[in-house]
Design a protein around this nucleic acid. Sequence first.
DNA 1: CCTTGACCCTCACGTTACGGGAGGCCCTAT
DNA 2: ATAGGGCCTCCCGTAACGTGAGGGTCAAGG
Lengths: 252, 252
Amino acid sequence: MGHTVGEVARLTGVTVRALHHYDEIGLLAPGGRTAAGYRRYAAADLDRLQHILAYRALGFPLDQITALLDDPAADMLSHLRRQHQLLSERQDHTRRMLTAVERMMEAHQMGSALTQEERFEVWGEFNPEDHVEEAEQRWGDSDAYRQSQARAKRYSKEDWLTIKREGEATTRALAAAMAAGTPATSPAVMDLAEEHRQHISRWFYDCTHEIHRGLGQMYVDDPRFTATYEGIAPGLAVYLRDAIEANADRDE
Amino acid sequence: MGHTVGEVARLTGVTVRALHHYDEIGLLAPGGRTAAGYRRYAAADLDRLQHILAYRALGFPLDQITALLDDPAADMLSHLRRQHQLLSERQDHTRRMLTAVERMMEAHQMGSALTQEERFEVWGEFNPEDHVEEAEQRWGDSDAYRQSQARAKRYSKEDWLTIKREGEATTRALAAAMAAGTPATSPAVMDLAEEHRQHISRWFYDCTHEIHRGLGQMYVDDPRFTATYEGIAPGLAVYLRDAIEANADRDE
DNA sequence: CCTTGACCCTCACGTTACGGGAGGCCCTAT
DNA sequence: ATAGGGCCTCCCGTAACGTGAGGGTCAAGG
């Protein structure tokens, strides 16, 4: 009964040396030792290790993890909740970094540069401490987010068809405008791009112009999307992207 | 002209000490010095710093960042593309961690426990080195990717329609299988998933099972895709994802 | 002209989270 | 009984800075 260091290492992907280290600093002391002095890890130790790995993956220093896990007021569930919270924030942060990169790519292609603040604001840190302090406050937001996710799950087949029909109407209008030779930067076409954006905001999530730009670029870069638009009319993907850009620029 | 260390520090959120350190190890040497020996950072230095921060945020060790940025074969755009790629992967990973936490919470509420593998597989690392090693491989791919992009641009309207029709045939077959109550993990449905994968590989890019899994998850998570599949049949997005997973598992 | 406070410089040692041996016991299998 | 893993405890090394110590620099104000 109980696992050796090597077994735990293989099971969890942590090195033996790391487990020794955790033992040394009192973060994870194995339940017992054999007569020969071999470490024996019990089930409870694995539970603890799991939470250690989660917090570690989130960037917490080991001494803080020790403090968190040794807090008698916190149980399994509260740790899981906190981890969930922090992971969600990390998602957000990564997404912001992604859109920042996308904007850089656009700026690069258009030969323009961004302002210094724009260029650096996102790279300013994953401070886990900040998160810990802000965590309580943000529970509200995250609740709202989950609700919106839950709502999406409850859309009926009719809802989905409505959503799709609405989207297709806009797309057809766009294709018509393009066929008529209307430039993508004309007000009427920008309005169609705006309609497209509103459509997403209404049904799914708050689609800022920022996000919208990202989508537009993706329609051009990602063949799975491109196929959808190019199948309707050649050049439509690029046309839509340009319209989205123009519309976002108009809004500033 | 040019900024002092303090200014750069405030602008970017990096500490002065860190900038000194980057100078010491040759990662970021300021463009010049004043007569008094003060560091002066020029615009080009800020460009470089931006990429440094991006790679650092992704967990790269500084010496590797040095190597990456000093590679004369890599320009702005290639760095941005790589960063985008890595950030996307990080998104995937975070999402997997999130669902793992969610599963833990469910298991906790139902009083059941998960198997060891289930509990630990996701926490097994963000190894940036893996990425670095894969990078070369993928760059080969990425060359292929760019080629495929270029090729995609030359598809005619008929090509696009063919592509779309092919894709829709698979989708319809899937919907039929689901309607018939065939489990997503049955061989026949896995074959359809495989067909789906081949379709992407044939027309766009080499779609590994790994990438395919990513797509499958996206069909469920990203409302823009979900709308497409749910509009055809409710539950189809999840069904497709499960089939993809099963097919990838089968392949090992 | 001189001081004062904010900013800059260069050592240089401290810290975190391990990696990587060295030297040596333990245990199972042939 | 001997060979092969696996385990143990030191112990030194490394990466990416933090944190002073000791000392010039510069613009504003008395």
